[in-house]
Simulated scan of single mutants.
Amino acid sequence: MNATIYKIAPEALWREAEAKGRFTGAPVDLADGFIHFSTREQAIETAQKHFAGQENLLLVAVDAGALGDKLVFEPSRGGALFPHLYADMPLAAVKWVKPLPLGPDGGHVFPDMEA
């Protein structure tokens, strides 16, 4: 699988992961036992539902194929299949990291997700 999946993360948490060399998850990930990701189509709704009004966020693009068999697509919101990683995420799987700022309307302004 060469698909790209996305993680929305607070910048401070992501910088800690960079220092450690791996991402172990946000508090919600640790509580649930897996790292939550979104597909491109799911990312905007994820931001609206779980990160509304939050500043200092980053959008992390991840090569799903680099995560191996610990990445599982499971039913979640409305039965949609969401990517869940049952392991720490190696930073080598990261394609890019971009800011996810708030726009004038209070919603997050997504970067070009193709680049």
Rank of each mutant, 00 (worst) to 15 (best):
M1S: 11
A3G: 10
T4D: 07
I5Y: 04
K7W: 01
K7G: 00
I8C: 07
P10E: 11
E11T: 08
A12S: 14
L13A: 15
W14P: 01
W14G: 00
W14S: 03
A17D: 01
A17V: 03
E18C: 10
E18G: 02
E18L: 11
A19E: 15
A19N: 10
A19C: 09
K20L: 13
K20A: 15
F23D: 01
F23P: 02
G25Q: 04
G25S: 07
G25E: 05
A26R: 15
A26V: 02
P27W: 05
V28P: 09
V28Q: 14
D29T: 08
D29K: 07
L30G: 00
A31R: 15
A31P: 01
G33Y: 09
F34Q: 12
I35P: 04
H36Y: 15
H36L: 08
H36D: 09
F37A: 04
F37R: 02
F37K: 00
S38G: 14
T39G: 11
T39K: 06
R40K: 15
R40G: 03
R40T: 03
A43K: 03
A43Q: 08
I44P: 02
I44L: 13
T46Q: 11
Q48M: 11
K49A: 13
H50P: 01
H50E: 11
H50T: 11
H50W: 15
F51A: 01
F51D: 01
F51E: 01
F51C: 06
G53R: 12
G53T: 05
Q54Y: 10
N56F: 03
N56Q: 10
L58N: 05
L58A: 04
L59S: 02
V60C: 09
V62K: 00
D63A: 12
G65F: 08
A66R: 14
A66N: 11
A66Q: 14
L67V: 05
G68Y: 09
G68T: 12
D69S: 14
K70I: 01
V72F: 02
V72R: 15
V72P: 02
E74T: 12
P75Q: 05
S76G: 13
S76M: 09
S76D: 13
A80D: 13
L81N: 13
F82P: 00
P83V: 05
L85R: 09
D88M: 04
D88G: 11
D88C: 05
D88T: 07
A92R: 11
A92P: 04
V94G: 06
V94L: 11
K95W: 02
W96H: 10
V97W: 05
V97P: 03
V97I: 12
K98D: 12
K98F: 03
K98A: 15
P99M: 06
P101D: 01
L102T: 00
G103K: 09
P104E: 13
D105T: 12
G106W: 06
G106L: 07
V109A: 12
V109E: 14
M113H: 00
M113T: 06
M113R: 08
E114C: 00
